[in-house]
Simulated scan of single mutants.
Amino acid sequence: MKTVTSQYREYDKYAVLLVNLGTPDSYTVKDVKQYLKQFLSDRRVIELTPLIWQLILRLLVLPFRSPKTAKLYQKVWLKEKNLSPLMYYTQMQTKRLAQAIDNDVIVDFAMRYGEPSIEAKIHSLQAQGVTTIKVFPLYPQYSATTTASVYDEVFRVLKKMRNQPNIIGVKPYYAHPQYIEALKKSVLTYIPKLNFAPDIILFSFHGIPKQCVDKGDPYYWQCQETYRLVKNALSNLNIELRMSFQSRFGPKKWLSPYTTDVLKILPTENKNKILLVTPGFAADCLETLEELNETERKTFLQAGGTHYAVMPCLNDSDEHMELLKTLAK
């Protein structure tokens, strides 16, 4: 029996597939439009009747939103590398994780929307002899709009395969001790680099429609738990902490309080110096580098604020890589 088990293990080959949201191939209107079309056609993201929504999307949303979004991507694009920040940091995370774990394990990455696709990477890994793939959505907090969509796509691909690899998932890590510790260390390391002492630290999570939570999505309370644990970990700072939600889209009510509204109110409370932290993002992207660091900076300063900073995401920091290594194993 031992011989059989040993022989079987010789034929097992493992891979870790990191999956992030996605990015257009470039900041041209054409590429941004293609990316937005795929993203906003996902029924996990937009829960409207497909026929009606596709008409709205193609006739109204894409023609007007694509040029505006392309200009925003152009602002944050890493032109010397010809990569979006999200693509760059995901590549770095993949490279560093591959160096950190067992040499027999293949580490690769895919994007839920755009390239490289989940489908292409699953077939690529199988062609390399991989029999078991650990799918690792880079979302600390679970939401049907993000994590579930990744697994939807994985199983859509598997449905078309006669010889399917074994799939293992990574559960949401919103309360993992190493994740909380990584956030804590990042804050404590970043504050001394500022040229001001913050009156308040605002934890801004990506928002989702409130109706998603009403239907049973656990995202809201997982964000609250992350915030509670980090707040406890930073209790010796003697700086006020709050949480909010950003990136609203469409007319429906989203999770609140909205980051924009909080930024407008804070100066009226004599909170004029602020540090923003984005615990829900595994890598810096358009939402952190443009929406928060530029657009919302103007919101705060125009409301009377004097000092404003956005802390970088965990990206490929040592603490983050130790967390990813633990979860990947």
Rank of each mutant, 00 (worst) to 15 (best):
I200F: 12
E115I: 14
Q224N: 13
K271I: 05
G169T: 12
D316M: 01
N236T: 15
S124H: 14
K193R: 13
T189I: 00
K75M: 14
Q128P: 00
N238K: 14
A282I: 01
V310P: 01
D102W: 03
A303P: 07
N272W: 00
L36P: 07
S235F: 04
T260V: 10
G22N: 02
L138I: 11
I118E: 10
W221D: 14
A98H: 04
P172T: 01
S244M: 05
D12E: 15
K264E: 14
A182T: 02
A328V: 05
M243R: 11
P279L: 07
L266H: 01
W53C: 12
M161F: 01
S41E: 13
Y151T: 11
F281G: 02
K271Q: 11
V4W: 05
L40E: 07
V157P: 11
A15V: 03
K184M: 10
Y73T: 02
K210A: 15
Q128A: 14
I180V: 15
L327W: 07
K159D: 14
V277P: 00
A197F: 09
L255I: 07
A282Y: 01
G216V: 09
W77C: 06
N195V: 07
E269Y: 06
L86V: 09
L21T: 10
K210S: 12
P63D: 11
T132P: 00
S204A: 11
Y179V: 07
T49P: 05
A127Q: 15
E115R: 15
N82M: 14
P116T: 10
S124V: 00
K273R: 14
T189S: 15
P198N: 10
S66W: 02
S66V: 02
L48F: 15
V154K: 09
I201R: 02
L255P: 03
F300K: 07
G207L: 10
S124K: 14
L266P: 00
E287S: 10
L18F: 05
D31Y: 02
C223I: 08
C313W: 01
A233V: 01
V16D: 02
N236K: 13
K298A: 15
L276M: 09
K71E: 14
D318Q: 14
T132H: 11
V310E: 06
T189D: 13
H206N: 05
N315F: 06
Q74I: 04
H123W: 00
E181T: 13
P24S: 08
G304F: 09
E269R: 13
L289P: 04
Q141G: 07
W53K: 12
L48N: 12
L289Y: 03
G22H: 01
D25C: 13
Q246L: 03
Y219A: 06
A110G: 13
N82I: 05
A110M: 11
L241H: 13
Y220C: 08
Y27M: 02
L125H: 07
